[in-house]
Design a protein around this nucleic acid. Structure first.
Lengths: 160, 160
DNA sequence: GCATGACAGTATGGGATCATACAGTCAACG
DNA sequence: CGTTGACTGTATGATCCCATACTGTCATGC
């Protein structure tokens, strides 16, 4: 019963599969951005937060956490550090006293420009040799995989 | 579908780009595997280590770390836990007293079978609606991106 | 009003990983 | 031999993130 020999297995071993390559590519993307943002003494998460507020204006922490895809607690501590550095401010919302509206300070707005330039440069590097058409195909494949994971398996509903 | 789109390429904001989608897909893959392996009380890293030793036989920690793509220190502590659970053993190498050869115990070999089955199931779920041809294209795109990041110099003579 | 549940943000503890520095071992070379 | 450099594994401290529980606030119902 144990898998002494796979019957007709043509797939490469786990560490050579597409899924593994995808994960390692993602890690590489993250460290590349992290390294690029390091000259501003920021990591990718902080940079994305600043960029988001720069584009969309004052934003609550929960919204920010959802958009950047981190937990609320993590978002809070990231904002703590950004606030300590004087890049963002917590402004009270007159309509809802539960929330903080994260706003950019002047130096925050200045750094947002740097972030945009660095992002542009890194993105150009990343996309070398990859056309828009291929990016769209890549995007749709990623989307399909995400749907595959988020929608429960037809034969198995066990998920934790 | 003609519209009043400007001639310049209008990139979506950072949190909607392919790179972001790739990173979030990778995170989803990781948690999906982690959750699936959780019924064995393993995470993906431990599972890959066991699977690797099951396929390739006794392996040094550094080799393991390189293949699984974690640091040597992390690999060591993962192996510590696996050894404490009696799934692997550190065997001395007669030829090189610096290294440990990681081997599977009987229960480790048994769990390796479970890991292979779970991996098979998750992989099938992940690949629903995605053909081999598309996977190969995905793989080549990921590979191109990795090369783009690892060779920062745009001087790339060999391109088709 | 006032209870009840839902929501925003925070505090806390824990997990996983990394970078760095270190001791022991190998290997090459004079 | 003995020295030097490279390599393996480990210890340490730090970072980043999460899950959970908690406080304060909103909103809806009666």
């Amino acid at each position: 019963m144990q898998s002494t020999d796979p019957p007709i297995e043509l797939d490469p071993p786990p560490w050579q599969r597409v899924e593994t390559s995808l994960v390692s590519t993602a890690r590489l993307i993250r460290v590349t951005y992290d390294n690029a943002m390091a000259i501003l003494d920021l990591n990718l998460t902080s940079a994305m937060m600043i960029a988001y507020v720069a584009d969309y204006g004052p934003t609550t922490q929960t919204t920010l956490a959802d958009r950047i895809d981190v937990g609320r607690a993590s978002a809070g501590s990231v904002i703590d550090r950004l606030e300590a550095r004087g890049l963002v401010e917590r402004a009270a919302d007159v309509a809802d006293r539960r929330v903080w509206l994260i706003t950019l300070t002047d130096s925050g707005a200045a750094i947002a420009g740097d972030i945009a330039r660095i992002d542009e440069r890194v993105r150009t590097q990343l996309r070398r040799g990859i056309g828009r058409e291929q990016r769209q195909m890549l995007a749709s494949l990623l989307d399909q995989m995400q749907r595959n994971m988020l929608s429960p398996t037809p034969t198995n509903g066990d998920n934790k």
